[in-house]
C-alpha cells in the first residue's frame, strides 16, 4: 500500500494506534453506557431525591448522615465484610478442589463434572426459592432428614447465628462457574510439564504446588477479585431468602443500598451509600492488583521480568 521509505514510520505510528483500535469497542461502550449514569449517580448523591418528588440540593449531607447518624450503615458494612471474609476464601478453595477433582482421570468423571456445574446454571431468584423451601424450620425437608438421623436441625432462617451459614451454603452452591474457570486453566497446562516433573521424582502434591498453582495464578487473581466484588455486592440471596433478617443479621450492604433506594425512596442517600462502597471495592481491587506482581506469573511477562521462570 505505501512505499518502503515511510513504511517504518507508518509502522511505528500504526503500532501506537493499534492497541487503541483493539480496545475501542470497550471505550465507546464505556462512554455511551457507563460514564453518563455513573456521573449522574455521583451528582445525585449530593441531592435529596425522594424519587416521586422533586430533587433538592443538599451538599454533602447524605455523606455526613451516613457516617454520623445511621448506625445501620456501620452494621451492614461490618456484616458484609464478615461475609466476604468467610465466603471468598471458602469459595476459592472449594472451586479449586472441585476443579482438581474433575481433572482426575477416572471413570464417570464427565458426569460428576456436569453435576458440580449444574447449580451454576440456575438463576439467583430460583436458587433463593429452592433453598428457602428446603431450609424452612417448620416444613423444610432438610430438618426433616436431620430428624430422621436423630439430629434436631437448627432454625436456619430464624436463628441469627445460623442465618449467615445458610447464606454461605446457598451461595456456595453456585461455585460451578469459578470451578469451570479454574478447570479451563488447569486443562491448559501442557502434559509435558507434569511428565518432566514426574521424571524428576516429584509427587502429585509437589507437582500441584510447583506447576499447577504457579501456572494458574492469573486465574486465581481473576477469581479473587471477582469474588470479592460479588461478596461485597451480594443482594439477591439476602433479598429473597432472608430479607435481611433474622434480626437484621444478614442485612448486607447491598440490601442496605437497595432498600434505601427502592423501599425508602431515598435515591440521593442510596447513591452516597453506593459510591462509598464503590470506592472501597476499587481500593481493595487496586490493592490486590498491586500485590499481584509478587504472586501472579504471566508467561507473556516471564522474559521481561525474569520472574517465576518455570517449566519452560
Amino acid at each position: 500500500m505505501f512505499t518502503k521509505k515511510n513504511k517504518q514510520k507508518k509502522f511505528t505510528l500504526v503500532r501506537k494506534r493499534v492497541p487503541f483500535l483493539f480496545i475501542l469497542p470497550w471505550i465507546i461502550g464505556f462512554i455511551v453506557f457507563t460514564l453518563g449514569p455513573l456521573v449522574f449517580s455521583l451528582i445525585m448523591s449530593l441531592f435529596d431525591w425522594p424519587i416521586a418528588g422533586e430533587a433538592k440540593f443538599i451538599g454533602f449531607d447524605n455523606f455526613s448522615t451516613m457516617f454520623t447518624a445511621d448506625p445501620q450503615f456501620y452494621d451492614s458494612l461490618w456484616i458484609t465484610l464478615k461475609f466476604a471474609l468467610i465466603f471468598v476464601p471458602l469459595n476459592l478453595l472449594v472451586a479449586l478442589v472441585l476443579a482438581l477433582l474433575i481433572t482426575q482421570p477416572i471413570k464417570g468423571i464427565k458426569v460428576f463434572r456436569t453435576i458440580f456445574y449444574l447449580p451454576a446454571v440456575v438463576s439467583g431468584v430460583a436458587v433463593s426459592i429452592i433453598w428457602g423451601w428446603m431450609f424452612n424450620s417448620e416444613y423444610g425437608v432438610l430438618n426433616y432428614i436431620l430428624s430422621l438421623l436423630g439430629i434436631e436441625g437448627p432454625n436456619w432462617l430464624i436463628d441469627p447465628k445460623w442465618a449467615i451459614v445458610t447464606i454461605v451454603i446457598a451461595s456456595a452452591w453456585g461455585v460451578g462457574s469459578m470451578m469451570l474457570i479454574f478447570y479451563t486453566d488447569i486443562k491448559g497446562i501442557p502434559h509435558e510439564m507434569y511428565e518432566a516433573a514426574s521424571i524428576d521424582g516429584a509427587g502429585p502434591i509437589r507437582q500441584f504446588i510447583s506447576i499447577t498453582i504457579p501456572t494458574i495464578t492469573p486465574t486465581i487473581l481473576f477469581n479473587v477479585i471477582t469474588s470479592v466484588i460479588a461478596a461485597l455486592q451480594q443482594l439477591t440471596l439476602v433479598l429473597l431468602l432472608t430479607g435481611g433478617g433474622p434480626l437484621k443479621s444478614t442485612y448486607f450492604y447491598g440490601l442496605f443500598v437497595y432498600n434505601n433506594a427502592f423501599k425508602h425512596h431515598e435515591l440521593g442517600y442510596a447513591s452516597a451509600n453506593a459510591w462509598f462502597m464503590f470506592i472501597i471495592i476499587l481500593l481493595l481491587t487496586m490493592l490486590i492488583f498491586k500485590s499481584s506482581s509478587a504472586w501472579v506469573f504471566y508467561e507473556a511477562e516471564v522474559k521481561k521480568e525474569k520472574k517465576g521462570g518455570k517449566g519452560k
Binding site: F30, T34, P37, L38, F40, S41, M44, T226, I229, Q233, G254, V257, Y258, A261, F262, L267, A270, S271, A274, W275, M277, F278, I281, L282, T285
Partner: peptide, 9 residues
Amino acid sequence: TMMIPWDVT
C-alpha cells in the same frame, strides 16, 4: 465498571 452498583445507575 464491575463494581458499579446497579441500584443507583
